[in-house]
Design a protein around this nucleic acid. Structure first.
Length: 423
RNA sequence: GUGGCCGUAGCUCAGUCGGUAGAGCAUCGGAUUGUGGCUCCGAGUGUCGCGGGUUCGAUCCCCGUCGGUCACCCCA
């Protein structure tokens, strides 16, 4: 009972599971690199104010999900709930816009939100994302969406859907909010409890409510697209044209609204469909935030980004956990030879071989069993008293079931040759 | 945050109509004294999530709590 456990919703990733994570991370790093994105690393803790001003005061994240605390210097700090705010902060702080017209950044790391944990939703979760500053055109948007789809495809995630929408810019959102509120207000009593509350705080969110009654009332609601100005409309059409040119399947989702206030114009989401996902089927979400850099005190630089949830992708990429394997193991027939084994292991490793051995002094049988089963060794070097006197060791080829005696001086070369041939 | 379901050895799970519990896998040891994967034999472990209540007695009933999970909410 008094044993310490990990904080609820925060998970350990044990060594055997790590190769699966690495595969996803490597694919992400590779494709972003091909697109010219460079990795950026920002602190995990930021001034609380940063998130309030970027994500928005009335959002769920800021209202109830942030890990916020006062540190010993009386500063109010928050564990980052997402990556964009920090990236924008860093972009402004280092005056990056003055050095280059376009900056393409990628990041990968843990985020924190205090929500009720469920499958695919954790309080500490990992996101991989990118931010592109300085290009306001629709082609970057399309390029980014296509990049995500390609990445997921490379990871074996095929069954997915790309949703895009446009929130417009400037006051379109405000005008639309008013129109929507006007449409729904007369039917207030028929809205779900949550939506009645949202009518005042964030009416756009009612659009993607799952309540049938809400859906019904929204059916006749005005469409956001109709409120777009000519430029917003051109941008949105440009995006769709570009996606068609790229052959990236997508669906316009007029009801798609995301929970962060900073979005403008393009909004997109990639949803997975595997049964493994549960209700959390959003693999990746993103959008344009043309006003954010300015809002946070920087110049007027249009930007767009997305983030994908690593744990959710892992639910779909599956794959078995794997144990690390070694090239060669060293076993001793007698405990007195353990020092000799130690030196031999050192020499093998110095030559670049992955070498391991059980030096606890157990039976030779158990050492071999461990070498073959657990370590997955290609070969085992057996040191025995008799061989030691003659300056030789037994080289056992586990795959070929053969064994030969070789001079101690040739061990490294012989093992290298064996390993090379089996690779 | 709200509601439902679940919580037994390291893992997957069985079980006790309430009398303190088991199987497989895994682990370890052995099967001619220094040699793996197959086979056979053997060994060990659980405060039956935790706390309280009912009871002569609870792992099995009730309450709470923690954790997980599903739906809602929200989102990656």
């Amino acid at each position: 009972m008094t044993t310490l456990r990990a904080v609820k919703g925060m998970n350990d990733v044990l060594p055997e599971a790590l190769p699966r994570w690495r595969r996803v991370e490597a694919a992400f790093r590779a494709i972003t690199a091909r697109h010219g994105y460079a990795e950026v690393r920002t602190p995990i803790v930021e001034p609380t104010q940063l998130f309030i001003r970027s994500i928005g005061e009335a959002t769920d994240i800021v209202e109830k999900e942030m890990y916020t605390f006062v540190d010993k210097g009386d500063d109010m700090l928050t564990l980052r709930p997402e990556g964009t705010a920090s990236a924008v902060r860093a972009y402004i702080e280092h005056a990056v816009h003055g050095r280059e017209p376009i900056s393409k950044w990628s990041y990968l790391g843990p985020m924190f939100r205090r929500e009720r944990p469920a499958r695919g939703r954790y309080r500490q979760f990992w996101q991989a994302g990118v931010e592109c500053f300085g290009d306001g055109g629709p082609f970057v948007d399309a390029e980014m969406i296509d990049m995500v789809v390609t990445l997921l495809g490379e990871l074996g995630v095929q069954d997915l859907e790309v949703l895009v929408n446009s929130l417009g810019s400037g006051d379109t959102r405000d005008r639309y909010r008013e129109a929507l509120t006007a449409h729904l207000a007369p039917h207030r009593d028929r809205l779900s409890e949550d939506s009645q509350r949202r009518l005042a705080s964030n009416p756009l969110r009612i659009l993607d409510s799952k309540s049938p009654a809400d859906q019904e009332l929204c059916a006749g609601a005005p469409d956001l697209v109709d409120f777009l100005g000519p430029e917003d409309r051109a941008h949105f059409e440009g995006l769709q044209g570009a996606l068609r040119a790229l052959g990236t399947p997508f669906r316009v989702a007029p009801r798609l609204v995301r929970g962060l206030d900073y979005y403008s114009r393009t909004l997109f989401e990639v949803q997975g469909r595997g049964g493994e996902l549960g209700a959390q089927n959003t693999l990746c979400g993103g959008g344009r935030y043309d006003g954010l850099v300015r809002t946070l005190g920087g110049p007027d630089v249009p930007s767009i980004g997305f983030a994908m949830g690593i744990e959710r992708i892992l639910l779909l990429t599956g794959g078995a956990d794997t144990a690390p394997t070694v090239d060669v193991a060293v076993a001793v027939a007698d405990a007195s030879l353990r020092e000799e084994a130690l030196v031999l292991l050192r020499d093998l490793r110095a030559a670049g071989l992955v070498a391991d051995g059980d030096l606890r002094g157990g039976s030779l049988k158990s050492q071999l069993r461990r070498a073959a089963d657990k370590l997955g060794a290609r070969a085992v070097l057996v040191l025995g008293p008799a061989e030691s006197e003659r300056g030789v060791v037994q080289l056992k080829d586990l795959a070929a079931h053969s064994q030969s005696e070789i001079p101690r001086a040739e061990v490294v070369l012989r093992v290298q040759a064996l390993v090379r041939e089996s690779k």
